[in-house]
Design a protein around this nucleic acid. Sequence first.
DNA 1: GAAGTTAGTAGACGCTTGTTTACTCGTCAA
DNA 2: TTGACGAGTAAACAAGCGTCTACTAACTTC
Lengths: 197, 197
Amino acid sequence: MDEIRQRDREGTRRRILDAARRLFADLGYDQVTMRMIAAEADANIALINRYFGSKRDLFAEVLAMQGRFPGVLDGPEEELPRRLAEYVAERLRSDQGSVVLAALIRSSSAPEIHEIIRDRVSSAILGPLSARLSGPDATFRAMVATALVTGSGTMRQLYGPDSGDAPDHETVVARLTAVFEACLGVGDPGTAPAPSR
Amino acid sequence: MDEIRQRDREGTRRRILDAARRLFADLGYDQVTMRMIAAEADANIALINRYFGSKRDLFAEVLAMQGRFPGVLDGPEEELPRRLAEYVAERLRSDQGSVVLAALIRSSSAPEIHEIIRDRVSSAILGPLSARLSGPDATFRAMVATALVTGSGTMRQLYGPDSGDAPDHETVVARLTAVFEACLGVGDPGTAPAPSR
DNA sequence: GAAGTTAGTAGACGCTTGTTTACTCGTCAA
DNA sequence: TTGACGAGTAAACAAGCGTCTACTAACTTC
């Protein structure tokens, strides 16, 4: 009945890391328990702390494992709004996505990992994005764009993938592209024209 | 030593409700414990469940107590982007703000209150906002604007009120106004012009 | 003034959490 | 063959959670 377990340190470590990545991305930091990770990885719960120290440290390692916003931030600056729009539009339908973003959306209520998330968002999203922007206030504009991506994820999490009266994909992408262009100030090198006052 | 406690059902109920509102808005649903609420309200913990049934029910009553986005959604449609921009810019500096929004930002990781938050966001923000919009896809456009407000709150929570290199208030408002105009499609009754392709 | 109602209290209940301890036993060098 | 090392395991740990029960005592009613 009881299977004979292989002794494979690196393999077990990797299984735990993969399971943690999946669960954290799907459920967020504090909805995931150590026992869930152990079960998903088919490993003993004590091994998690043995290999990673603590839940917090495991979370940090999962985030550190992730690359920087795959594919979206690369390419010419003038196509950035469209690529971001397509990324968000895709996220609104399927559950795929960056673990860093998922962490930002779903794990922001746990204060003990705020610093981890902040550092990772800065180095994986905000930094690369603002570096690609020309013109003034690049950091702020990047932050607004990130806020839009984040907020879309929050709404998506709350309302689910099929928000009944959502327009077709083309329209969604077109609208989001316009918004991201306004965020990033592409084709608008100076300060945005101040309306009234 | 032991103070003589007044017997004041309605007063105690109100103290608990106020304490819960403050704590939920500041910390989010699952960072607030029943004991914290009882201490903040200077009431016995058993009275919370006696008067409100459960933590979840108390949270629902706190949200139901709140009005609809005070002041921001009222007024002519063409000024909506500017008012939203000023609201967000103000939120980026101080900690004041709607409890409903705070709940949306900080409490979205607890699945047992998703339905409560969703209903309240729909009736307090999304509904009134989309009702004020003319043109197609009003609900979707309202959702994008809400996502921007939400995402700003998330970034604000992560990075704090003083994001070192933030521009001055005027610039922030001007930029955000442009973004909200793109979101809401004000002055653009048809579909947004599709860039390229 | 006696009896009943009820606001308020103290403490424990059962459960879950992250973490740790004591142990088993497969693996490999001497 | 023997001994040490270490991967894996089971069980418990303390702390915290929301909730509930048994009780005290202040107010109302007759």
